[in-house]
Structure formats: C-alpha cells, structure tokens
C-alpha cells in the first residue's frame, strides 16, 4: 500500500470536492423540509451512502422546485 501513499497529495483535492458536494447537499436537505418525494432521512442517507451520485440525484430529482 506504500505505493498508494505517494499519491495522497493528488487524492486530497478529489476527496475535498466529494466532501463539499456531500455537505452542500446535506445542508440543503436539512434547511428545505419539502421534497418532490421522499423524506429528509431518505435523502440524507442517499447523499451520504452514494458519495458522488447521491447529492446530484438529490439536487436534480429530490429538491422541491418552487424554492
């Protein structure tokens, strides 16, 4: 696994981008209690478990359009 260690400087920005995406989604989910479908718990699980696609799915399909 030492070989992977040398790539950590390259992996950090990638991880930051993914975490930012997740945090923005979770903040949005918590602050807007109305969704097109699903509940707050469902969307938080989706955003956390499906690291990269989850937040995108939430913003495209889950967010209530009129806000």
């Amino acid at each position: 696994m030492n070989e992977i260690g040398q790539y950590i400087p390259f992996l950090i920005p990638l991880a930051i981008a993914q975490v930012v995406l997740m945090v923005v989604a979770i903040v949005h989910i918590v602050r807007h209690r109305h969704y097109r479908f699903g509940s707050m718990a469902l969307w938080i699980v989706v955003a956390v478990v499906f690291g990269f696609i989850g937040p995108v799915v939430y913003f495209v399909f889950g967010r209530d359009r009129d806000e």
Binding site: F10, L14, A17, L21, V24, P55, V56, F59
Partner: peptide
C-alpha cells in the same frame, strides 16, 4: 439552483479522478 456549482464539482471530480 446549484446547477453551476454541481456541474463544476462533478466535472472537476471527473477531471481529477
């Protein structure tokens, strides 16, 4: 609507990964 933000983060992740 976060569209710009999402597009840039997604494509940024693609570009790095």
């Amino acid at each position: 609507t976060y569209k710009l933000f999402l597009m840039l983060v997604i494509f940024g992740v693609f570009g790095m990964s």
